[in-house]
Design a protein around this nucleic acid. Structure first.
Lengths: 406, 406
DNA sequence: GTATTAAATTCGCGACACGAACTATATGCG
DNA sequence: CGCATATAGTTCGTGTCGCGAATTTAATAC
């Protein structure tokens, strides 16, 4: 008897070239729409004839539709192509306090967006979320829904299909994917919020031009998403990116994760509030937003608390920057609203004592929008080819092949 | 006038499939030699006819040669194929104290290996190295040399072609690539030692099966190499992997890099020696090897010093493990000689308070061998296709294509 | 010798990208 | 209006490649 072991070797067939080029053309249309076939050929380097065949295929697949006719000083007028925005994606961003639900088209434009409270009971929250989604599907029944994308402040394990690590949410392990899929009949994709922000940057931001950057989400906790070598780094079981729970001080305050002195204990919104509480009594019920307003209006203790937080934020980022050498650090969170105040402080803290080379550019991104748009990208990834991830190959032209072991 | 901007979009041509499959077949031969065409077809999933054509091409290119004829209970006998081991690679491992030079065949087997001292003067060392290499080229003049691979305890900047960050070597910026190339006439590839160990693991170890692991080299300093999503992470300017210079304590002892309290200040061989020096006076001239021997023979202070070092090592690894979620942590360095003593201590320290999921397997690797073999892989990468890195695509079937900007 | 088995090659086919030729459609000028 | 010119988009012939069936080669068993 022979032992068979399925290795991951991937061979190319005749269709592989088409699959690759289809992805290139589809993403060029997404990026540069409206665009003519002739321009696609110029931009991609493919022959006009090849572009025609591929666009024909994309139109058959209903990903692309004809747009308006262009005007040129001379010659035949080009027919522009654009994405079919009748195809929509349902998106949700789960946060400890509230959940945002919405509908977006394939371009990441939102048709609708609303919020609902997040409760401590996963089942109740998921039920309410599913109801909202079903309602949205009725309201937008003229659209075709590609899937549901959900970003969470934690980790989703693909094997067990459960949320397995979400200390700031306070949920036990829960099968959110199955629950929502059963209630709606639509396929659900779940991803960590910081990773979703990475996808949003790649899909709707600077694209794949920047091949190494990290996203740091600062809210109740601290999340990090790593984009390296032009790919989102997921790690074993999708657990990569928990730099927020790296211990800076083994004897520091305890963290929601069970550890002590984690980065997020010093640099999250909660940390700033704690610093403020320590300096002044009678400050119950204060939110991070309030703290920002206080600092803006000149409250010295509030400024001091935020400065401590920002200092810790920069210190932790230096860890990421030293280890991963990103070109950019993208910051997501409420504190970006006063970027003028915090931005330079973070940037100089990051650059301090950096081993060799140039410090990265530190810049803000819009939070909710990034998370939601990231989940749009998450759902579309399956159809748009290997942009931002290698896992696509297996499902398309490539095949897993056998190998004889032993 | 049109502004033209070369984007990195890569389209596939007819030859793309062949390039991919050539790489698959060549690497299967490398891995499983001697192997027949029939087995290659079975293992790869390609048709026997396709395998025949590709192997014919590889034999023409002189990468593959016919081996012995096999024996089977029935039927025509298979002709085995194997790599052409007349093609050799010159390798060097530069370390602060000494440099190892050698010759290896394409299988990573060493034909020769010798050491020479490393001096504080880059020019002198490079000159001596070049002389040794020229001598080896004469001794093995029956071989064809593919290139020279050099691993360094620092960073090589591809643009300036210089060693730009090597605090433990104590060299100023130096163009080692140009110096050796001019003196030998052979192409030189330079890579950080930890990254070289990563390549060695992927090429001569478990292969691409483990898609996420990190290498931690422990010697004068601490180096880290990150393998994620099945790729070596290089970062901007190839600077990724300097986790050794992440500050654990901003007020800690100063480091060779100019910072304070870096991980390597607490967890390197030098750190262990410092701990020992602190506990006992009159211990000048002691090497790390001596310390290991002392500990083995029951010197309690030596044991204590090494325990402190191992504790710090584990603490830093927890940072890597939390952030990158590797399946494995591979340790390279002298301390692996007493792995029975240190291994379990490191592993339990790493697993302590890890956010969610399973801790990685921590295991040792042979140091000098890994570094040297890694440089073999470094040189061969160019010819063996996109194994362990995406940068290959540009040079083979893929092309950069134009895009009109503005 | 003949049947059987397996390796390796040959050959016809379809998919694909390429590139030249061709068609379609616009502007401008005599 | 008619013709030159320019640009978009399509058609068609060619070469490469992988596929898979048929064929050839070479060994063993009876």
């Amino acid at each position: 008897m022979k032992r068979i072991d399925f290795t991951n070797t991937q061979v190319a067939s005749s269709q592989t070239a088409r699959d690759i080029n289809r992805g290139v053309v589809l993403n060029l249309i997404r990026r540069r729409q409206p665009i003519s076939r002739a321009d696609l050929a110029r931009v991609s380097g493919l022959q006009r004839s090849t572009v025609s065949l591929i666009t024909e295929q994309l139109i058959r697949e209903r990903w692309v539709v004809h747009g308006p006719i262009g005007r040129l000083p001379r010659g035949r007028r080009p027919t522009f192509l654009r994405l079919n925005d009748r195809r929509a994606i349902l998106v949700a961003d789960l946060r400890p306090a509230q959940t945002t639900v919405g509908v977006a088209d394939v371009n990441g434009n939102f048709l609708s967006q609303e919020t609902m409270p997040t409760t401590r009971d996963p089942g109740v929250t998921a039920g309410a979320l599913a109801a909202k989604i079903r309602h949205l599907m009725q309201v937008y029944s003229d659209r075709v829904f590609e899937g549901i994308g959900i970003s969470i402040p934690g980790r989703f394990n693909d094997l067990s299909r459960r949320i397995v690590f979400a200390p700031n949410l306070g949920w036990p392990e829960f099968d959110i994917k199955g629950t929502i899929e059963d209630a709606t009949g639509v396929r659900v994709e779940v991803e960590n919020a910081a990773n979703a922000c990475v996808l949003a940057e790649v899909w709707f931001g600077h694209g794949e031009k920047v091949r190494d950057f990290v996203v740091v989400t600062v809210s109740e906790g601290i999340g990090t998403g790593v984009f390296a070598n032009g790919q989102l780094i997921r790690g074993m079981n999708g657990m990569a990116g928990e730099f927020g729970h790296v211990s800076l001080d083994p004897n520091g305050p305890s963290c929601t994760c069970g550890g002590r002195g984690c980065w997020e204990v010093y640099a999250s919104n909660r940390a700033a509030l704690r610093y403020y509480h320590e300096s002044i009594k009678s400050s119950d019920g204060l939110t991070f937003q309030d703290l920002l307003v206080l600092a803006e209006s000149g409250d010295l203790l509030a400024v001091k608390a935020l400065d401590r937080m920002v200092h810790a934020l920069g210190r932790g980022m230096r860890m990421l920057v030293a280890g991963l050498a990103p070109e950019e650090v993208v910051v997501v969170g409420e504190l970006t609203r006063q970027w003028r105040r915090f931005g330079p402080a973070i940037e100089s803290e990051v650059a301090m004592g950096l081993p060799g080379g140039h410090p990265p550019h530190v810049r803000p991104a819009e939070g909710i929008l990034a998370r939601l748009r990231g989940t749009v990208a998450l759902v579309l990834q399956k159809h748009f080819g290997p942009l931002a991830g290698p896992q696509e190959f297996e499902e398309k032209g490539f095949r897993r092949i056998r190998s004889l072991a032993g």
